[in-house]
Amino acid sequence: MTDQAHGEHGESRRDFLMLTAAAFSAVGVGYTVWPFISSMNPSQDVLALSSTEVDLSAIEVGQRVTVKWRGSPVFIDHRTPEQIADAEATALDDLPDPEPDSARVQKPEWLVVVGVCTHLGCIPVGQKPGEVTGEFGGWFCPCHGSVYDTSGRIRSGPAPTNLPVPEYTFLDDTTIRIG
């Protein structure tokens, strides 16, 4: 660079112009690239499908049903008093991802969790009568052996966190809206 016009501290006007131009182009490139990257994120029509209403009245005590929400299964468990007691009695120290049962349910008899193993995304078994439910009576993931309890919390195996509780609201006593 032909920077003869040095300022007091040795930097030139040209250096300043170079730096400013570089900084502005960096921002410009960022703005230009963002739409390209963003186009790969979920589109509006995919986002629009993101709430589901479920009628709970037909689900008996002890029964589990699966509904589809945003393409993933959601497990709805009408828990028995024993299952609720089990979940509430568990000491937080025994949990890899400590969370009390009360923080995971709105009404103790209804457990609503996303049925996607937090390890690598398989669907745990235990929804249908007769399926393996694992040592803690919750769910068992056949892929790499994660075991969940009656609150959908991880108890053993490679999964790092509890089955997530989706956002949902009780519209009335027997209807919920997920999402």
Partner: peptide, 13 residues
């Protein structure tokens, strides 16, 4: 992961 999928699961996108 959501970005890779273009949705909330592996799907049409």
């Amino acid at each position: 992961v959501t970005w890779l999928w273009g949705g909330f699961t592996v799907d049409n996108p």
